[in-house]
Design a protein around this nucleic acid. Structure first.
Lengths: 204, 204
DNA sequence: ACAGGATTTGACTTTGTGTTCAAGTTCATA
DNA sequence: TATGAACTTGAACACAAAGTCAAATCCTGT
């Protein structure tokens, strides 16, 4: 079964290339991305990149998909590692903001926004992430209400959407060079909004 | 005074090129921007573009500067065209969101975020816009309080910053293809937050 | 109307990048 | 270990776009 060989290594290389591309995008930005950068980051030759991904668009799409999945899964895991409603909210806020200028997942995610503009496939990915983030916050809110910790000032869905949009806005500024916005401010204002919307003091 | 000729036409051409570049960016995106696109949009030859802007970066920077200025000035004008605090707030919200997928000023503004990452000059422009937008909202809030129309739930500066970040987050999604977010939703949620923060019902 | 600098142009050169490919190498299986 | 498919490579190629420049044209002040 000679195809088994191809499959295994092929798949491994493709995963490796997705990671390499994430790093390359983090370092150079998507618009300056060259095949040789991906190749160098993966430690192989440019020709091999094309061998495993004849269509560069496919690689970029896989990167987007992986990054969306990692970002979301990490949030779910960290949120679910807490029982207390307030701590769950803080976990959601913390995992929703980029950790720094070198946060590869967050950086790549934002670089992908420029693609969503012209590609409905990328747009669909972004929408799926947005919807799941809203659902995540929605669940946190509802459970908090059920536990008697939160008293919402409006529909949970609206609060959840506002939180996600706020995160994205802060993310944009944190990854740009808007010096008026830093991580502490972002956490503080997000927590303040959450406090106001839930009536629950957050341990931030 | 033969230099007068140069000056006058030179300056006019540069302004014309800035406008042409805005349109080209709106149509093709910044990463696909070619000199020939700018030239075509301006109705001149590619060589002339380089004649007036030997450094493309300088052109891009001028575009950024102009777009920031237009965006902000338009907001100030429309806000100041109202006397009532609530209507001023609505005007601020409406001018802070992109009008559609073809809103050239807003589109260009967001395309520029990708530059701020690597260029401190562009970062400074973005920061200056952010700060002025915060100041604009801050003034609206303070005047509303003085007029007895608003009763703020927190520091006006924090509310103002939250409003600006919310706008930017919505802008990001509106200009991408996040189908879960549309202009109506953005206006509604922004108004709801403003209502909550000021205690004043908005005529939206 | 003329002189001379300012502007415009299109053809040419240069550069940087993606893409192809023949040849070599690795590797799983029989 | 022998075989052939999967993989890798670097050199050659193709191409698109920026940049250069000499010549033509326009413009303004005199």
């Amino acid at each position: 079964m000679p195809n088994m060989a191809r499959s295994k290594k092929h798949i491994a290389r493709r995963e490796q290339l997705v990671d390499a591309t994430m790093r390359a995008i983090t370092e150079r930005g998507r618009q300056n991305l060259r095949i040789r950068d991906i190749a160098a980051e993966a430690g192989i030759s440019p020709g091999s990149v094309l061998y495993h991904y004849p269509e560069l668009d496919e690689l970029l799409f896989d990167v987007h998909r992986v990054v969306v999945e990692r970002f979301y899964q990490r949030r779910v895991e960290l949120v679910e590692s807490h029982d207390d409603a307030a701590r769950r909210m803080v976990a959601a806020i913390d995992t929703g903001l980029p950790e720094g200028r070198d946060d590869a997942v967050a950086k790549t995610l934002y670089e992908m926004h420029g693609l969503a503009d012209r590609s409905s496939q990328h747009g669909a990915l972004m929408t799926s992430l947005f919807d799941r983030e809203v659902a995540l916050y929605g669940t946190i809110l509802e459970i908090g209400v059920a536990a008697g910790r939160f008293a919402l000032t409006g529909p949970s869905r609206d609060i959840a959407r506002t939180l996600v949009v706020l995160e994205d806005g802060f993310g944009l500024h944190l990854l740009s060079n808007t010096t008026s916005v830093d991580l502490t401010l972002a956490r503080t204002l997000l927590a303040r909004y959450a406090h106001q919307a839930t009536g629950c003091e957050l341990p931030i």
